[in-house]
């Protein structure tokens, strides 16, 4: 039984999603990878399953640039409903943007644990997941 049940990818880039999903599956640390093409689909699912803890992900990797509802708009909606969710969901922004303005904006949102610039390497991904399992690990990614 993998230590993490669900990782959710919110990203419209099909190639990237395909590759990242493959990479996560190879770690054997995650039971299921779910994918939403935009923020709206993701937030709707969470809203519908607020009490259904088994269906909610432990980790979300959130892209910023998406159609319909982008990463920022998703976060705005998520912050509103977060207190009502019966489970801690760790959100990482995962974007190809290296813009300092984006990174700064992400750090100002409490619900965002970190900003990971694409591409993510397999080793970083494993570290990220391990860090989630053992939060006291000194290797925990710092916000600073």
């Amino acid at each position: 039984m993998p230590p993490i049940k669900i990782i959710t990818l919110i990203d419209d880039d099909q190639v990237y999603v395909f590759l990242t999903k493959k990479m996560i599956e190879k770690t054997n640390l995650v039971k299921e990878v779910r994918v939403y093409e935009n923020g709206l689909d993701a937030i709707n699912f969470i809203k519908e399953n607020m009490g259904n803890l088994d269906e909610l992900p432990e980790i979300i990797l959130l892209d910023l640039s998406m159609p319909i509802m982008d990463g920022w708009q998703f976060l705005k909606e998520f912050v509103k409903i977060n207190p009502c969710i019966g489970k801690k969901i760790t959100i990482y922004i995962h974007s190809s943007s290296t813009s300092l303005a984006d990174i700064k904006r992400a750090k100002e949102i409490e619900e965002v644990s970190d900003y990971i610039v694409k591409p993510v390497s397999k080793s970083s991904l494993i570290e990220l997941i391990k860090n989630f399992i053992n939060p006291d690990d000194p290797l925990k990614l710092s916000k600073e």
Partner: peptide, 24 residues
């Protein structure tokens, strides 16, 4: 600024994909 964002968001994303595809 818009232009920087375009470079950062729109050009970098496909490049990342190409790099990852090459790795894989």
């Amino acid at each position: 600024m818009d232009f920087c964002n375009i470079i950062s968001h729109n050009l970098r994303a496909p490049l990342v994909n190409i790099a990852m595809l090459v790795d894989f």
